[in-house]
């Protein structure tokens, strides 16, 4: 209760922590749409957090946090890509600019809704399929380990993974659309 009064006053250090924590998943997703791998995303988010902290006094209202943070993160992403030099594993600058503009439009509520839908949808998959969907983030070589255990080729498993991801995102899309309709009614 004491905090709602505070939101109109000057933002404190505590507010910064809270806002950063609240919006970090959205910032992470935003960086992922621009950067080619997760290691780079982690680096950029860390650097951006420090920059945001230093410039926090410039922020005027809580609601401005996410758009402001995306500007900082976008800048850090593009500069990290420039540091990679002429790497064939990243998108061209023109495409990155388009992606950054379009991804910046996604707001905090949309992100939260997508994450909630994702959890519900993931739970609908069988345990082995959930394991495969999470394998790319569960340690290096995890997909290949599963391939060995199941006696399938890694290639076949990556194809299956692609199909499962497509099915998962279909489910997430559908449940967001339903949620939005439910909201409007």
């Amino acid at each position: 209760m004491a905090d709602s009064e505070q939101s109109q006053k000057q933002l404190s250090e505590g507010d910064f922590m809270r806002l950063l924590m609240k919006h970090e998943p959205a910032l992470r997703a935003f960086s992922r749409s621009l950067l080619p791998n997760w290691n780079l995303v982690d680096e950029v988010i860390q650097e951006s957090s420090l920059t945001l902290w230093e410039k926090f006094s410039q922020l005027e209202s809580e609601s401005g946090f996410l758009p402001w943070a995306k500007v900082v993160v976008r800048f850090k992403c593009l500069s990290a890509i420039r540091d990679l030099g002429r790497d064939r594993h990243v998108f061209s600058e023109g495409v990155l600019e388009l992606l950054a503009d379009e991804a910046a439009e996604m707001d905090a509520e949309e992100h939260v809704a997508a994450m909630q839908a994702l959890r519900v949808c993931l739970a609908k998959f069988s345990n082995p399929h959930q394991e495969l969907l999470l394998a790319p983030y569960s340690g290096e070589g995890r997909v290949k380990d599963i391939a060995e255990q199941s006696g399938k080729s890694a290639n076949a498993l990556y194809k299956l993974l692609g199909r499962l991801r497509e099915k998962l995102s279909g489910c997430v899309h559908e449940s967001i659309a339903k949620g939005a309709l439910g909201h409007g009614a």
Binding site: P25, R28, A29, F30, R32, S33, W38, L99, E102, A103, M106, H111, A114, M115, L118, R119, L122, L133, L134, P136, Y137, S138, R165, L168, S169, V172, H173
Partner: peptide, 14 residues
């Protein structure tokens, strides 16, 4: 952009 969000969510869950 949508799939990058899903990717981020899956990683969080993992």
């Amino acid at each position: 952009i949508f799939e990058a969000g899903t990717d981020a969510g899956l990683r969080e869950i993992a």
